[in-house]
Nucleic acid binder design. Structure first.
Length: 593
RNA sequence: GGGGGUGUAGCUCAGUUGGUUUAGAGCGCCUGCCUGUCACGCAGGAAGUCGCGAGUUCGAGUCUCGUCACUCCCGCCA
């Protein structure tokens, strides 16, 4: 017989009766009847009930075994009587009658209970992550993560993408997030950086002729955390393709995502490839931002003209000063009480907005303070808006164009939530395409890249030379699911002369470019294939599939909000000797305590 | 760096307008009883700097100020 087990704790059935078996696992729960003792023995696979009575020579040892101790038991598979079946677990038809009982490792009282789904503070959970991970929910989430990753690998391999590892110690990238730096011992005073993404390497792999690359790539960024952003590190499905159009890049990813979401969720409606393509401009106009939740049927419209020179002075005056008015329809609200509208208005005020006006239509008749100040022809215009009917309402937000859209996006979700219009059990994917190549920095008034500087501008060198930079689009795109931005990608700029011009517009000289991106730039001079790719975030995909609102629930060992590992004690101070070896000196340390 | 929320037993939380003696409950832990439970049951017990510091008050877990921790958000994330 095997030293530890002949079966796992989810395997045994009635058909195994009378077999002599050996099981190992954790003491999940004990039910001590004084002269009869039940132990739920748990391993990764499930639970099997173990039973001993007073006559058993291991009885008192077993009675004293604490929760979460690891034991090995040998015994017979005994069928349970009809009254004692447990239909909740797959092994509930049998139990193990103990012949031998070995304590492999005993457990002290626990800082968090493994056998419950009780909520614990995150610092406790992270400090004792190995206990937290033993719990059912975390086992499930990590298992799901594994399935997401293996389905992705399968999907990419099937399309002949080649998985290639790129360096973890690399050069600091001048743009983008802060990167983590690693001092070099051999080159005093110099630093490596951990990659924010393998961006340049994947482009170099295309130039190296590998045609189609992918990687489950770790990415390191020194940013502050959010519920959907774990500080420190995260993973991307990084992929890149040679001789590919934007459509080719989309076609490669869509079936993989569809497969992952279809296989790993139950009773969800998932948008089928090809996913909807929405231009950046259209997206902002209709949804207020570039990460629309398409489960929400409400669409924004600009009704500035309707209020212009109207007798609703508040808006009319504001419009004369350069504001715009955005309308959000609220369908089928004829029975909504006054408080419904008041509540939303005061919500808008609590969000530091002027307020949220409205017109309520009941049998085509406009009601409310704004309706009283608008003539019939103007009111009629509202009924012509997409999604409106004679018993709908319409909300208004008035403000400066570059400020109000952001809030309109939030208000659109708020109204839809209030009216319960967001369909649960749906995953709605879309590509947002045609991003602007450049944007104006509001503070400095300078033209800068709006996304990846290596994206190919649409129209090539010609348009770069002729067009107003702010009107130039890039072959740059994002994929969005239910309002969550999964990634961005682009068809890359593989022509040095276009690149020089593109950087010149953003205020970089050829010399800057050569200095900061010498390796990549030089590579483009030795025959570079046109190429493009994308890099959806694995953690966010797992979050969506798992239905978890917090990204730390699907990462085995995440940092806390202060980017600390409470279990491993990282980051930590190091010996003076180590610092010296690295030619480092700590100065200006902020005082604590 | 800034804003909101939270902080009471090992854990999750209750604690009224500032006033009932010794600040409670459930889980966990300890002791005893219990041979068919499966979140076993029953009886008992230990366990508290009410985050910390100051203030107001006859009186503070409760009010005020400061501070720290946790959490969510803004900034940041080409």
């Amino acid at each position: 017989m095997h030293l530890y087990r002949t079966h796992n704790c989810s395997e045994l059935r009635l058909t195994d009766k009378n077999k002599s078996v050996k099981l190992s696992g954790w003491v999940h729960r004990k039910r001590d009847h004084g002269n009869l003792l039940f132990i739920d023995l748990r391993d990764h696979y499930g639970i099997t009930q173990v039973v001993l009575d007073k006559k058993n020579k291991y009885f008192s040892t077993a009675e004293k075994t604490s929760s979460e101790s690891v034991i090995t038991v040998t015994g017979n598979v005994v069928p349970r009587s009809d009254e004692t079946l447990n239909k909740k677990i797959p092994t509930g038809e049998i139990e193990i009658s103990v012949d031998e009982y070995i304590t492999e490792s005993s457990s002290k009282p626990l800082p968090l209970e493994v056998n419950s789904d009780k909520d614990y503070g995150e610092d406790t959970r992270l400090k004792y992550r190995y206990l937290d991970l033993r719990r059912f929910k975390m086992q499930k989430n990590i298992l799901l993560r594994n399935k997401v990753i293996s389905l992705i690998r399968e999907g990419m391999n099937k399309q002949n993408f080649i998985e290639i590892q790129t360096p973890i110690l690399t050069a600091s990238s001048p743009e983008g997030a802060r990167d983590y730096l690693v001092p070099s011992r051999i080159n005093p005073g110099k630093f490596y950086a951990l990659p924010q993404a393998p961006q340049q390497f994947k482009q170099l792999l295309m130039i190296a002729g590998f045609d189609k690359y992918f990687q489950i790539a770790p990415c390191f960024r020194d940013e502050d955390s959010r519920a959907d952003r774990s500080p420190g590190e995260f993973y991307q499905l990084d992929y890149e393709m040679s001789f590919a159009t934007q459509e080719d890049v989309f076609n490669a990813l869509e079936p993989v995502l569809f497969d992952v979401f279809t296989k790993l969720t139950k009773n969800f409606h998932i948008s089928k490839p090809p996913f909807k393509r929405i231009s950046f401009d259209e997206c902002v106009t209709k949804y207020g931002n570039d990460k629309p939740d398409l489960r929400n049927p409400l669409i924004l419209s600009n009704v500035t003209d309707v209020f212009k020179n109207s007798s609703f002075k508040l808006f009319a005056d504001s419009i004369n000063k350069g504001s715009i008015v955005i309308a959000i329809p609220a369908p089928d609200t004829k029975d909504q009480p006054r408080t419904f509208f008041d509540k939303l208005n005061s919500w808008a005020k609590s969000e530091d907005q002027g307020g949220m006006g409205y017109v309520q239509f009941i049998n085509n008749e406009g009601k409310g303070p704004i309706a009283n100040n608008l003539d019939k022809d103007r009111l009629k215009k509202f009924l012509e808006i997409d999604g409106m009917n004679g018993n709908s309402s319409i909300f208004f937000l008035c403000g400066k164009a570059d400020e109000i859209m952001e809030f309109a996006a939030i208000a659109r979700m708020k109204i839809a939530n209030e009216l319960k219009l967001i369909k649960e059990n749906e995953f709605q994917f879309c590509w947002v395409i045609d991003y602007p190549m450049y944007q104006k920095n509001v503070e400095t008034n300078k033209i800068e890249f709006s996304h990846n500087p290596f994206s190919m501008p649409q129209g090539g060198l010609d348009e770069l030379k002729k067009k107003n930079p702010l009107d130039i689009k890039a072959f740059q795109y994002d994929i969005v699911c239910n309002g969550v931005e999964l990634s961005s990608g682009a068809i890359r700029n593989h022509k040095p002369e276009i690149m020089v011009k593109a950087f010149e517009i953003a205020g970089y000289t050829k010399k800057d470019l050569e200095k900061q991106f010498s390796g990549l730039l030089q590579a483009f001079n030795f025959g570079a294939p046109p190429h493009g790719g994308c890099a959806p975030g694995i953690d966010r995909i797992v979050m969506l599939v798992a239905g978890e609102p917090n990204i730390r629930e699907i990462i085995p060992f995440p940092f806390n909000q202060k980017a600390e590992d409470l279990m491993m004690n990282a980051p930590a101070e190091v010996d003076e000797g180590r610092l010296k070896e690295l030619s480092l000196k700590i100065s200006d340390l902020k005082k604590k305590d």
